[in-house]
Design a protein around this nucleic acid. Sequence first.
RNA 1: GGCGGUGUAGCUCAGCUGGUUAGAGCGUCGGAAUCAUAAUCCGUAGGUCGGGGGUUCGAAUCCCUCCACCGCUACCA
Length: 571
Amino acid sequence: MVRYLVTSALPYANGPIHFGHVVGAYLPADVYVRTLRMHGEEVLYVCGADEHGVAITIGAERENRPYAEYVAHWRGVIKSTFDRLGIRFDVWSGTSISPNHAELSQDFFRRLDIGGYLLQREEEQLYCTTDARFLADRYIAGTCPNCGYPEARGDECPRCAKWLNPLDFADPRCKVCGSTPEKRKTRHWYLDLPKLRDEKLGEWAAAHEWKPNVATFVANQLKEVEPRPITRDMHWGVPVPEDRARGESGKVLYVWFDAPIGYVSFTRDWAEAHGAPDDWQKWWRSPDTRLVHFIGKDNIPFHCVVFPSMLWGVKQDYVLPWQVPANEFYNLEGRKFSTSQGWYVDLDEFFARYDADTARFYLLSSSPETKDSDFNWKDFQSANNVLLADTIGNLASRVLKFLEKYYEGKIPAVSAEHAAEFDRILLTECGAFADPGAALLDFRFRRGTEDLASNARVANVFVDRVAPWSLRKTDPERAGAALATCCEWLALLAQWMAPILPGKAQRLWTMLGNLGEVGEQRWPQLPVAGAWRRNLSGQRIGQVDVLFPKIEDAVIAAEIDALHKRAAATS
RNA sequence: GGCGGUGUAGCUCAGCUGGUUAGAGCGUCGGAAUCAUAAUCCGUAGGUCGGGGGUUCGAAUCCCUCCACCGCUACCA
């Protein structure tokens, strides 16, 4: 039987995450996982922080904190954002704390080496004697040999956009301490991607059915792959295994190499925590597993080429990715999110004022599935007020308040005759409805949010058409049956809402007088006349309250104003 | 430079392998209704589907080219 192993890109423990990260790799994954579970599928959702790499050591040193403490801090901050958004992983760990991670990463290295997929090369790099470390390209400044710009970065000149080699700088400078680095020779291991491609990956990737935006990209990547360095001279990270070090010391695995292995090591952590240490194998080494990586587009090469190469190259029967839903980028009001430039949404303030479910809904409804898109405050307000409050929330209010007022808060009976009549009207004469789950399982999250609104609209049309407020005076039984039909529909709506709006779905569920968790319901089939009602008649409804409060214009205006003021203040 | 993406009604976007009068939501305007969070429902608005060329009986949908915007180019989605 098929099972789904879902991962979200490991967030780098070097700062807070913003809505761009959330909408790119985490929220859609969470919604996907919830949807799968309601469909009765077996799912494991894995994530954790990526905690190695130079950027982290520099960040920590700037703050004068031990590396471990520094990454623990950001690991916690990031996790709390996920918690507030209702993004629930089955495992959340970190590459520096996972008890399995170092050993497993070394195991990958060892097996790749033994298999002949690693190369060793000697090269010159710039070494900062003050900081006692080799410098990554981006931490070197100098005068651009191409255009003479004095503040060029080691990887690229910001003025002439020329791709640079920092060894070509006449006046290299360490961007961290300002001193002049010296050239030193060092030996490093490289992953032989061309060989891996020729033996397996090329064929696999060509045969694989990628999403359209990923397919061409992968094909091009494979054409041009080159061996890629997988070690670095530093002390923060997973050490190169001694038995393969060949006399080299002071080297760790490059962060990109160990990071994706985190998916596997965290799964092992999870298995051990559940008292079944071998369980991870079922997820990673069974052909029945569908491995789904949620990532942003910048991660496509890793997840479609590099990591699969590693997984295959160790010859341990690891599964290769089944789908890699990659999103484009998400901006804020037309500009890139940038903490340093004050162009961001403070998530603590955000969640103090707004509902997490509303955020989930809006983020998905505006998510960058086919092209870059924006978080836009006015659109956020509109999504809440128009789609959630007016269309969905008000539907619940108008129906349930009516029942409270005239039917003693009980869902009325429906005769077979009335059921047939109202099924016909609701299902064939009130507009189109769709199964949002189908869209969600197809990674079309935007579409899923649209379906939700459309489905609520169908019931609004139904209410208007049947007009129970006047019918009640002439035929209260029929009016009651119409309202009961609406309750049945609301119960469906609550289930449809559950993956995207888990909290609100649950409230609607209990408002209808249902017990238990809506998220634990079996995903409903698309309603068919005569076979879709749960038969809620006689059930006492719960307390009816406003499902989605509106957001006032002034509140949004203040947000936009604050954003611009903050940006102006930092520039 | 290389590679990729996008350009459809005021706004945000759907339109798979080409086929009757190009669609939805929001907004606008008019009307109906009054159960409801002044919510809902109905109708309306006429966009040369970025420009040009080509293939075809027929293209928003395929090909070429040009323009514009965006991204990636491999350690922060």
